[in-house]
Design a binder for these strands. Sequence first.
DNA 1: TTCATAAATACAATCGATTGTATTTCGGTA
DNA 2: TACCGAAATACAATCGATTGTATTTATGAA
Lengths: 343, 343
Amino acid sequence: MENKTTIHDIAKTLKIDASTVSRALNNSPRVSQKTKDRIMAKANELGYQRNLLASNLRKSVTNTIGVIVPRISRHFFSSVISGIEETAYDSGYNVMICQSLEQLKRERKLVETLLANRVDGVLLSVSMETDEFDHLLNMKNNGTPFLFFDRHCEIEGVSSVLIDDFQGGFDATEHLILNGCKNIGHFSGPQELAIYRNRTAGYRKALEKHKIPYRPELLIRSGLMENDGVEGAKTLLSLPYKLDGLFSANDIAAIGAMKYFKNEDVKVPDDIAIVGFSNEPVSGIIDPSLTTIDQPGFQIGQIATKLLLDEISRAPNSNAAMAKTTILKSSLIERDSSRNISH
Amino acid sequence: MENKTTIHDIAKTLKIDASTVSRALNNSPRVSQKTKDRIMAKANELGYQRNLLASNLRKSVTNTIGVIVPRISRHFFSSVISGIEETAYDSGYNVMICQSLEQLKRERKLVETLLANRVDGVLLSVSMETDEFDHLLNMKNNGTPFLFFDRHCEIEGVSSVLIDDFQGGFDATEHLILNGCKNIGHFSGPQELAIYRNRTAGYRKALEKHKIPYRPELLIRSGLMENDGVEGAKTLLSLPYKLDGLFSANDIAAIGAMKYFKNEDVKVPDDIAIVGFSNEPVSGIIDPSLTTIDQPGFQIGQIATKLLLDEISRAPNSNAAMAKTTILKSSLIERDSSRNISH
DNA sequence: TTCATAAATACAATCGATTGTATTTCGGTA
DNA sequence: TACCGAAATACAATCGATTGTATTTATGAA
């Protein structure tokens, strides 16, 4: 009961060799059915359970992939994780889930731990703080296949599965413009991250297309937490001219702004129309419901995992395939925060 | 670059023994400072990284605890996980996070995988489907310390860290009664789980205390998903007498009901007052905001981890401490869905 | 019955790190 | 200079499973 039973225990009680036990447990054709049966029976009787530490060490394969996301509680990331798990399990892989909590220091440590545990590959969406890549380059040099999803870095030879954030930002902004908005504020998020740069670029492109001048004071950079939305809304309302639209680079900050507007008796969407980004479940529930950009999280997880597993199975002969960037479409979900505007 | 460097590689290039390298890397006093420096330098140069598979196998300790929750995306569980991670990291432990997705089959497989990976202990909140315990008994017999949090099973000798669900259910119901509700519906959740049984018992106790007869038709059992809330609301509205209060065993189903009531032009709280359970972030954001029972998730995680680590460090001499049940208080958060009722 | 061949099993090395024991080296003292 | 004890290092077994090679056993044909 105390000490786990090993193949040697089974071998000894049956008076056969451990190698035969190992082969039987792996259903090798080199062991006769009769012995297999005896071994299986004894294994069950003793409550044998394979020691994966030993097995993986010997095989130098763990059948495990590591996943690092900023926060597991974000709906987008948890749907990506579901997609990853489904695909991975189907291929016989396990998944180690980790969260960086948006901290570079933690991200570094997690990468190190995953590598030390010899995961076969890593899927990664970087933290908001990640502006140095030494830990990622280290992973690359180390020969561990990995892949970015959603939030990526420019590292040569590393593939990514991304959302078309530029298009998303463009769609969100143009939607506001087509609904009559002229002075459109934008919560942009940390511009160190490509996803936020791209959303902002889409915002500017839409303005440009519709010949609306870009005004720097309408662009609010922040961490996109709920309270950042409150503060941003406050700043925008204090401008000398009237805001009539807001595109926030995520839903959470948009909701913060909505709360502030409600307090100030600013009507959404009649006074100010709002579009968020990410389609958090809460966005469909609040009142007014929030127009947003939906990202196919589950699908991203599936695709990223498939690509990673490909890379893993190809790894030894290495330099074969080039890095490729897969870009998925996002879609605008129109809701009450930008609909039927009466002004 | 391709093959990871080992202590033997370091040993060979420095013409010393691998055991010395190992001791140096573990900062053993048996190695001179001079040699340590040489070894460290070479280790960095070669990009050495300890192979935890080998190390853990040899030491038969992984410094890792496994965590199984029904869903990582639930706010309550992700705050428990934060508490677990904080406490575990502080003690030098890693955490493997897994989600059962409320499926017994998956829970079984996850337990097996964690055991096969020889985690030092497991923290577990069972799935809604878990009505057989063979996998848990197996873990117990196997000698792996584990502990329930929030959702537990009656297994002798296994400790739990729980919320006082009875009190929570009582508080929620009494709150409705004190606000004038007489016909109070209840979404009870699967009664196989103790937490839901206890919430329901609290509901009945509050009715009894205030001499309100219990009516079975007011009790709706379901899976507590959002759509279950919609269906439950529909059923309750079709009763021959007028419902004026609703206590849902979680927030999600309560929100489903609110949506349905809004559609049917039933006013919350004036026609029907509502109290949920769990304090999901969305509950403070929706309109009207949802009165709910707040559970100290982070604290549960901290306490459960501390207890588990105690048990792990005590494990060899085993049968020492008895199983204990720690019960934490929940607290009612009063919001608009049950406040200032005018009827 | 005998031998060739296939089937079944045993032997032994290995994965990478750890650790108890044995050996060597060194500094200091008589 | 010889020797003792401590410091530093080397040797070798081990954790549990896997796997290539060698050996034994069984089967069937001549």
